[in-house]
Design a protein around this nucleic acid. Structure first.
Lengths: 119, 119
DNA sequence: TTCAATACTCACCTTGAGGTAAGTATTGAA
DNA sequence: TTCAATACTTACCTCAAGGTGAGTATTGAA
């Protein structure tokens, strides 16, 4: 994953897409960046409660190498770095749309099936 | 994952869908079953080169619990078990379509970028 | 002189996903 | 009596994903 050269060969398209989107926080990062357009490192961190700095940076780096995320550094003190989606990142987010809707429907169905779950 | 009761709460739909589709062979199983309609355990195993029996069974059981797969046992000797997709399984496969196409395009782009890679 | 703020970097550890290989149960055929 | 065929089951192991917590670099403000 995340090395521009060695990735494949893939068995199918899902395979190739998963290679880029699998990772505990990646779909959330995708969503945050799509939602806000541009976010600083600290903003992302605060927007994804529970993420560790290590994983956030690691995922961002991989997504940058995979051409999904653009990283803009401002040479200031204290440092300022802004992240945003590339065209590929935005198209991936679109492609994830139907899956997200399916999951939404599933979650609603599960919630409806559990007998109120508050005792 | 795979326990009908305790799954959530999910942050978003992608989250809920990933909970059900993550697993090294699940999307392939989904594809095999969608493609053939019905497959025996041994057929699936042969159709997914590299899968271990342990993982195949484990994934099939989870997908059954998640309501994606139907398991039909024939009381014969030697044993015969047939797997097929439920309506939910088929709809998940549909929802994965755009992601698969995105991955396909990405794989083609990567292949086109690498300079023939045969030296 | 010390501290705050930001975006990392590093070393270490835990956990669980997945692999490997052997064993089980059943019955008909050789 | 042993073997083949099928669909598992079990014990054990490896490895990588991810978590934790501390450290780094820079400069202006107090």
């Amino acid at each position: 994953m995340a090395s521009s050269e060695r990735c494949g060969p893939y068995i199918c398209g899902i395979d190739a897409a998963m290679d880029v989107v699998s990772g505990k926080w990646k779909s959330l990062i995708l969503w945050e960046l799509d939602n806000y357009g541009t976010r600083r490192f600290g903003e992302l961190k605060r927007g994804l409660p529970g993420v560790s700095e290590k994983m956030l940076i690691q995922h961002l780096r991989e997504m940058e190498q995979d051409g999904l995320v653009h990283r803009e550094v401002y040479r200031e003190v204290p440092p300022k770095v802004e992240y945003s989606l590339t065209e590929h990142g935005r198209s991936l987010n679109e492609a994830l749309g139907p899956l997200g809707e399916w999951g939404q429907r599933r979650a609603e169905r599960l919630a409806a099936e559990t007998p109120t779950a508050s005792a």
